[in-house]
Nucleic acid binder design. Structure first.
Lengths: 220, 220
DNA sequence: ATTAAAATGTAACACTTGTTACAGATGAAA
DNA sequence: TTTCATCTGTAACAAGTGTTACATTTTAAT
């Protein structure tokens, strides 16, 4: 895999004065169609990939064949930037286009150069990686909860803290089950029971917290 | 928590010519005793902490009160360096001394300065963070396996790849159960059954893989 | 609008895991 | 060595979860 995918269109420079990138930055761009798999879990990650338009989902395929939903990403955002510098520099997840997308690719050497000459870039890079690590730690915390209702409660309370008592979840039930790492019918059963117990109200993808107290009790 | 813990002894410079650090680097040092809790989950992480001697364990306390063992760390190694740059710069875990330890503390501003003037330091920092992210991703993969025997198999196969068919685990059963995120008696039952099925052999903390095939089948 | 594919809720059942309790083994400290 | 706290394996039982199947609804493409 030494040669670059021919679909990558190379450019010698960036003319966008807003970017803050040096004029001679080497990069390339590649478009993807909806539902296309953009990167595969385990594939080499030898450059910085930035999602410049569209949105993607990342998921981890386990050895047992289960799918574990990780996150939904909207442009603009780098994809798994931390792994560019790891010893085993491979993508930890499958990345799939949720709609038509475009990816900006900056070679590792150029990233290193940017780091050196642009303190802001380095700062942003470090901060982003730090926030990713935090995200993973939070994901780990969710999975360390042993019951499905406990995981749901953890997730819903987090959503409530950010959006209030009523909010919309941008995952369907199948994806939500994958996100929680449980079987779909099991998730459906737990949600039904929580509705029946007047803890939450559900209308399609819109969730409403009715009894915060009971929800917190599910964590005990 | 603006003031620095008085137990930190400040130094104006480093005299160790080997370190590669600038002579005027500001840092401080603090000793810890065995079993002492060094950092608490959620406490502010406003500096780079490096474990210079001893060993520690990190664990995550969930809202449900469960303990999830994360990793065992031996000196020398930085502790949760990524979180220094996150928006919510807090420790994601409890850090407890497994033996007498010593921690080197470098203020964030000094770390930034090091980054700028020492490309090697920046490289190492990035690489370390990348490897940490990889570690977390692997931990996530383990937890996404739904059965206890599956998690055990994933773990043992990983150990085998690194150390061969016989190896020693440096965790007791209670800690191992916490590492797998399951109840201790449940882990004991699963291990017993795997021994009875002639998949593995166990002598105290020494594990031997007998039937690799069957072990891999547990992942399906 | 029509059609096929995918997603959803539900149910019954088997299986796995957690809980609790307790006796014996182990390990650390005096 | 003795003592005490902790760790460990085991058992019986309760509880939670996964699996499979199917009818229904929703979604997306033609």
């Amino acid at each position: 895999m030494k040669s670059i995918d021919p679909e990558w269109k190379s450019y010698g420079s960036i003319d966008d004065g807003e970017s803050g990138f040096p004029a001679d930055l080497k990069y390339s761009i590649k478009p993807y169609r909806k539902n296309e798999i953009m990167f595969r879990q385990g594939s080499i990650c030898d450059a910085l990939y930035i999602l410049t338009s569209g949105s993607v989902k990342t998921e981890m395929i386990t050895e047992t064949g289960n799918i574990m939903g990780i996150e939904l990403i909207k442009a603009p955002r780098p994809l798994a930037p931390a792994f560019l510098f790891s010893d085993n520099n491979r993508f930890p997840v499958d990345v799939t286009a949720l709609e038509d997308c475009e990816i900006l690719r900056i070679p590792k050497e150029e990233v290193m150069r940017l780091m050196a000459i642009q303190p802001d870039f380095m700062q942003q890079f470090l901060k982003h990686n730090a926030n990713r690590a935090e995200f993973l730690a939070n994901r780990l915390q969710l999975l360390s909860i042993k019951t499905i209702k406990g995981r749901i409660a953890h997730f819903l309370l987090e959503q409530m803290a950010e959006y209030g008592k009523t909010f919309t979840i941008n995952r369907n039930r199948t994806e939500l089950a994958e996100f929680f790492g449980v079987a779909r019918p099991s998730l459906a059963r737990s949600l039904s029971e929580m509705v029946e117990d007047n803890i939450i109200k559900i209308n399609k993808k819109q969730f409403t917290i009715i009894d915060e107290r009971k929800l917190k009790d599910l964590l005990l």
